[in-house]
Structures are given as structure tokens and as C-alpha cells.
Amino acid sequence: MGRSSKDKRDAYYRLAKEQGWRARSAFKLLQLNEQFNLFEGAKRVVDLCAAPGSWSQVLSRELLKNIDTSIAADEKPMIVAVDLQPMAPIDGVCTLQLDITHPNTLSIILSHFGNEPADLVVSDGAPDVTGLHDLDEYIQAQILLAAFNLAVCVLKPGGKFVAKIFRGRDVSLLYSQLRLMFRKVSCAKPRSSRASSIESFVVCEDFNPPSNFQPDLTKPLCVIDPTNAHEIAPFIACGDLDGYDADATYPVEINMKKATLDVIQPPTAPPYKRAIELKHSKMMS
């Protein structure tokens, strides 16, 4: 079976290698920032579901850019990256290997911020897509809500939350949940995300919890549908229309010298690692 159009490597895959990003998803955050100015005034940032770390790379580069080295240490931007998977270190980023649904995670993150609330929380979390769409969409919604639950515990009023969202069957219900806490909720799609993907990013601005809201990480949120509401967030396309198109095919001159670049960061600990090692060692028939 040949490769399908969904599986092919696109222009951003090659760009990511050239520019040193660990994954092509780096361009998505860059393009989202172009549209929403997410990094403006951000001093304390949490990156959830961070592995392999391309979003943390973006945060590190953009937030530390033009920072005067003479500024006192307590004034420098602080970035905390959280994932259950191990992650290779990144300059300027504190990496934590934690379960984002565990109640203790909250206090550990806040301790790195000197118990100050965060300005921005980002999450590029998605399950390894199983292909059974109901389960994929359910798990992704749960990951989003887990990130959301953590975000509302660490964000300051007026803060921002950006997360990957699968625009499938239950996407309206997720919008309803998010709108309870933020004054402005948009659905954004950067140019580096393919049109053939149901992936988008929900951008929540101006954190404004209800007065009776009590943060509690021990009670996970769930997708509920009491009113059959059909909430739809406004759509915003991000990125320059004249930039690379993730769906397009670009030519390469035959006579040009080709250089194969190494993978910036291979998977650190894939779940099938041991199965593959055994297979390669021919211990199995």
C-alpha cells in the first residue's frame, strides 16, 4: 500500500528539520502567535503535553529574545514544560515528567513560579491516533479538558489558554465548557496545519472565572450535554497566505544537491520500543 495523502511529509516537515525544530508543530504555535500575540507580556508560561518539545522550543526562543542579560533573575520569563513522557532538555525550560491529571502537579508547577499565577498555558496534546474515531475524539477531548482544568487552576485573571482541539462530533460541547471561563473563545487554524486534518486550536483569551468557582484538580471535568447546545466558536485562519501551504506539493530541482538531515529529536521512549528491539534481535519466530 502506498502512502496516502494524509501521511505524506509536507513542506513544514522539511522546514522544521532545516530550522532545528523538534517537530513541525513549532510552526503552528508561531503562526498562532502572529495572529493573537500570545507571548505579549508573558512571564510565566506552562506547556502541557509538551513532548517532544517543539512548542517549548518556540516559547524559549521567543520569550527570551531581546531580553537584556542585566535583568534580575526574578524578572526573566519562566517556562515549565509538563508531560508524562520523558523529554530532552531545552535551554530556559524547566521540564517536569508529571501526570497533568494528578492533584500534586498543580503545587509543583506553582512552586516553580514562586506561587505566582501563570500568564499563558499552552497544550498541544493529542493521543496517538488510534483510528477508531469515537475513542480518538473522546480521549482528545479528555486531554483538552484535563489541560483546561489545570489551566484554570494556575492562570491569573486575564490570562490566556491555547490548546489543540479535534473538531469532530463533540466539538460544540467543548466550546461550551471553555466559554464559561474565558470572555473570548476562538477556533484557529494555522496554515501549517493541513486542511485534511480535523485538528485546530482553541484560543481562549481573558480568563474570567465565575465568582463561585473553586479550583480543584481532584475532580476532572467531563464532556456533558445537558441542553443539546450547538455552540460554535468563530473561526480564524492564521499565518501568511503567501507562506507555505501544508497541503501543497513543492518541486525540488533534480540537479540540486540534496542533503538528508537527521531527525532533530527521535522519539525518546516509544511504547513499542521493547517490542521492536525483540523483533530486531530475532528472538521471535
Binding site: 495523502s5 506539493t249 513543492y250 518541486p251 525540488v252 530541482e253 533534480i254
Partner: peptide, 10 residues
């Protein structure tokens, strides 16, 4: 042609 494509041209 003188061009080739890294991905598949669809």
C-alpha cells in the same frame, strides 16, 4: 521533467 517532488504529487 527537470523537477521532482519529495512528497507525492496528487
Amino acid at each position: 521533467s527537470n523537477k521532482t517532488y519529495d512528497g507525492d504529487l496528487r
